[in-house]
Amino acid sequence: MEIVKEAVAGTLESSDCLVMVKPYEGLKVDIESIVMERYGRRIRQIVEDVIKSMDITSGYFKIQDRGALDYCLKARIRIAIERAGVDNVR
């Protein structure tokens, strides 16, 4: 499924993250985090897992992380995708 419009979820407050999604050819994930050095790998894994679990095949994902725990990342990504709406084009 594809992301059909731009949407955001979350905030830039401490312990939160801001997720922006928009339509894109293919899948692209950009992550910016205050804990990149120690948790960048794990954050990317979570983002990819959520995208996969929601059967998203194309879209651009930008994560601005301010130290969100796993659960918060998941919730924010999921809501961003829901707000954007997905389209089963294939």
Binding site: E37, R38, G40, D70
Partner: peptide
């Protein structure tokens, strides 16, 4: 458990 095990610093 909350934060996850941090990666080593390079």
């Amino acid at each position: 458990r909350l934060c996850g095990t941090p990666d080593e610093i390079r």
